[in-house]
Amino acid sequence: KVKIAGPGLGSGVRARVLQSFTVDSSKAGLAPLEVRVLGPRGLVEPVNVVDNGDGTHTVTYTPSQEGPYMVSVKYADEEIPRSPFKVKVL
């Protein structure tokens, strides 16, 4: 029921550039959304989540370095389908 889309989860994500993606939970009811961005060697990146007021949230983060990242998206305390997402930061 929760959908996710945006360039911040795709290929070609650049280090030190603001990345974003949208989480659409409009068909999933009200529940807490939790997003974690883990970088190389367990680095935890700050994440900004904005409630758009229409059942969607815009998530932004800036990867601080190149390497493999994991983006975990939980809704109602459960990983959404395909989460955690593997993101290769260049």
Rank of each mutant, 00 (worst) to 15 (best):
K1L: 10
K1E: 07
K1F: 07
K1A: 05
K3R: 09
K3G: 06
K3Y: 11
K3L: 09
K3A: 07
K3M: 08
K3S: 13
I4Q: 02
I4N: 02
I4C: 13
I4Y: 04
A5T: 05
A5V: 15
G6D: 05
G6F: 06
P7R: 07
P7A: 12
P7F: 08
G8C: 03
G8S: 03
L9G: 02
L9E: 02
L9W: 04
G10Y: 05
G10K: 08
G10S: 08
G10C: 11
S11P: 15
S11A: 10
S11H: 15
S11Q: 15
S11M: 10
S11R: 09
G12A: 14
G12L: 12
G12P: 09
G12S: 13
V13N: 04
V13H: 03
R14D: 04
A15H: 09
A15D: 04
A15G: 03
A15T: 08
A15I: 06
A15F: 05
A15K: 06
R16W: 08
R16G: 14
V17I: 14
V17Q: 13
L18Q: 14
L18N: 07
L18H: 08
Q19H: 04
Q19A: 08
Q19I: 01
Q19S: 06
Q19N: 08
Q19D: 00
S20I: 09
F21Y: 00
F21V: 02
F21N: 02
F21W: 01
F21T: 01
F21Q: 01
T22Q: 08
T22C: 09
T22H: 11
T22E: 08
T22L: 10
V23M: 04
V23S: 01
V23D: 00
V23Q: 00
D24N: 05
D24M: 04
D24T: 04
S25R: 07
S25C: 15
S25M: 15
S26Y: 04
S26L: 06
S26V: 06
S26G: 09
K27W: 05
K27N: 14
K27F: 06
K27Q: 11
K27V: 09
K27M: 12
K27R: 12
A28G: 05
A28C: 07
A28D: 04
A28N: 04
A28V: 07
G29R: 08
G29L: 09
L30N: 15
L30F: 14
L30P: 12
L30H: 15
L30S: 12
A31F: 07
A31M: 10
A31H: 06
A31Q: 12
P32Q: 14
P32V: 09
P32E: 14
L33D: 02
L33R: 01
E34C: 14
E34K: 14
E34H: 15
V35Y: 04
V35C: 10
V35W: 00
R36G: 09
R36F: 08
R36E: 13
R36S: 13
R36N: 10
L38N: 14
L38I: 15
L38E: 13
L38S: 13
L38K: 13
L38V: 15
L38W: 10
L38F: 15
G39T: 06
G39R: 02
G39L: 01
G39N: 11
G39C: 05
P40N: 04
P40S: 04
P40I: 01
P40D: 05
P40G: 03
R41W: 09
R41H: 13
R41E: 14
G42E: 10
G42K: 10
G42N: 14
G42T: 05
L43V: 15
L43S: 12
L43C: 14
L43H: 12
L43Q: 11
V44G: 11
V44Y: 12
V44A: 14
V44M: 15
E45D: 08
E45R: 04
E45Q: 07
E45L: 09
E45N: 06
P46V: 07
P46I: 05
P46C: 08
P46F: 06
P46Y: 07
P46G: 07
V47M: 05
V47H: 08
V47N: 10
V47C: 13
V47P: 05
V47R: 04
V47K: 02
N48Y: 11
N48E: 13
N48L: 09
N48I: 11
V49P: 02
V50M: 09
V50S: 14
V50Q: 15
D51V: 08
D51N: 13
D51L: 10
N52D: 06
N52Q: 13
N52F: 07
N52L: 08
N52E: 11
N52G: 07
G53M: 10
G53R: 12
G53Y: 12
G53K: 12
D54Q: 09
D54W: 06
D54Y: 08
D54H: 11
D54S: 09
G55Y: 08
G55R: 12
G55H: 14
G55T: 05
T56D: 04
T56Y: 09
H57N: 07
H57E: 03
H57G: 05
H57T: 07
H57Q: 09
T58W: 09
T58V: 12
T58G: 10
T60A: 07
Y61I: 03
Y61A: 00
Y61T: 00
Y61E: 01
T62P: 02
T62H: 04
T62W: 07
T62R: 09
T62E: 05
P63N: 01
P63C: 03
P63V: 01
P63Y: 09
P63Q: 00
P63R: 01
S64I: 09
S64D: 08
S64F: 07
S64M: 12
S64R: 11
S64E: 10
S64Q: 12
Q65H: 12
Q65C: 09
E66M: 08
E66I: 09
E66G: 10
E66Q: 09
E66Y: 08
E66A: 13
G67Y: 00
P68H: 15
P68T: 14
P68I: 14
Y69C: 04
Y69G: 00
Y69H: 12
Y69N: 01
M70V: 12
M70Y: 12
M70L: 14
M70R: 12
V71E: 01
V71R: 00
V71F: 03
V71W: 01
V71S: 00
V71H: 00
S72I: 05
S72C: 07
S72M: 06
S72K: 08
V73I: 12
V73P: 01
V73G: 00
K74F: 11
K74P: 01
K74L: 07
K74G: 01
K74Q: 06
K74H: 07
K74E: 03
K74M: 07
Y75M: 06
Y75G: 00
Y75H: 06
Y75D: 00
Y75K: 03
Y75E: 00
A76L: 05
A76H: 14
A76Y: 05
A76D: 11
A76Q: 10
D77K: 08
D77C: 08
D77L: 06
E78F: 05
E78L: 07
E78Y: 06
E78A: 08
E78K: 12
E78G: 04
E78H: 08
E79K: 06
E79F: 09
E79D: 10
I80N: 01
I80K: 01
I80R: 01
I80V: 11
P81L: 05
P81C: 06
P81A: 08
P81E: 08
S83I: 02
S83L: 01
P84R: 02
P84I: 04
P84G: 01
P84V: 04
F85D: 02
F85I: 12
F85G: 01
K86P: 15
K86Y: 14
V87W: 02
V87S: 01
V87T: 04
K88E: 15
K88G: 11
V89M: 03
V89W: 02
V89Q: 01
V89A: 15
L90C: 15
L90Q: 11
